[in-house]
């Protein structure tokens, strides 16, 4: 009896393993695998590091947000549980968090005058969304050599490898190998998925991995000064902003994992109880 449970489960697991094994095969062609950089929020019990999220937000704000929107993010999100400026003092209304209010107030957003209906500018509140750097996608493309910078709201979920992929792109810019023709407004990055066959003039059996990305290397060492005194290396900035984007992509990840632990414990106890009932009810029945 036990054996057949194991067999049934094993088949299910085998089926899923096959699916899992097939998934990397779906990843686009010849890019290098993302760098093996560990993050605190990985794994079934991983959590976001709040100091890292604050540093990451600063990198986003001072560098990324010049070109990239985050349309799904509101300032209030920054003060929510597990967010960069979460403070348990304001758990009943995170919008009262003075950091969040102050950050929002640094931005001006479009509105209309409630008396006259005339368009006006006002200071943003925690309820407002992060303003976009460009008025529309066409303007964003026009200002960036034809390629609109993608929205970063769910970027960690929208790329294979998640935060590790983002980190690898940000730290992965290298000089193109000799024999690779790099066009205008293009930059070689071995972690960016693409097909370099047509631009490669070397040995055809060894086309370099990677692709051409329109974004020039965005981060350099010391570009952002961290308020907590952390040394601002390229790797540190890349890691912190990758963590911030991973949090923004899945702000409920911690709640999800914590719920999951409780659910698993409950189901395990329930399974044990049911198995005991099963043994008791079937006792004496040859089968």
């Amino acid at each position: 009896m036990k054996l057949s449970v194991v067999k049934t489960l094993a088949s299910g697991v085998a089926a899923l393993a096959l699916v899992g094994a097939a998934a990397p095969a779906l990843a686009s062609g010849g890019a290098e695998h993302p760098k093996e950089v560990p993050f605190s929020f990985e794994g079934p019990l991983g959590k976001f590091d709040q100091a890292q999220l604050q540093r990451g937000y600063k990198v986003y704000r001072e560098v990324c947000s010049a070109c990239h929107s985050m349309n799904l993010m509101s300032f209030r999100n920054l003060g929510q549980e597990t967010g960069p400026f979460w403070d348990p003092k304001f758990k009943h209304n995170p919008n009262d968090n003075p950091y969040v209010k102050a950050i929002a107030a640094e931005y001006e957003v479009d509105d209309i005058d409630s008396e006259t209906g005339e368009p006006i500018k006002r200071k943003a509140t925690p309820a407002d969304r992060f303003p976009s750097p460009y008025p529309n996608a066409t303007a964003a493309a026009a200002a960036n050599g034809g390629a609109a910078p993608p929205d970063l709201s769910v970027m960690a979920k929208a790329r294979h490898g998640g935060a590790r992929y983002i980190y690898s792109i940000l730290t992965g810019y290298v000089n193109p190998p000799a024999g690779l023709h790099v066009g205008n407004n293009q930059h070689y990055n071995p972690y960016f998925p693409g097909d370099l066959t047509s631009a490669w003039h070397g040995d055809h059996k060894h086309t370099p991995k990677g692709g051409f990305i329109a974004m020039p290397q965005p981060l350099t060492a010391g570009q952002v000064t961290f308020d907590d005194g952390t040394k601002s290396t390229l790797e540190q900035q890349a890691k912190d902003v990758s963590a911030f984007i991973a949090w923004a992509s899945d702000p409920k990840a911690t709640e999800r994992k914590q719920t999951g632990v409780a659910v698993m414990i409950f189901l395990a106890l329930f399974a044990g109880l049911t198995y005991a009932s099963y043994r008791r009810i079937w006792r004496g029945i040859a089968h």
């Binding site: 299910g12 697991v13 899923l16 719920t259 999951g260 632990v261 659910v263 698993m264 189901l267 395990a268």
Partner: peptide, 9 residues
Amino acid sequence: MLFAVFVFF
């Protein structure tokens, strides 16, 4: 339990 492993983790 298998379902929950996917949903939560």
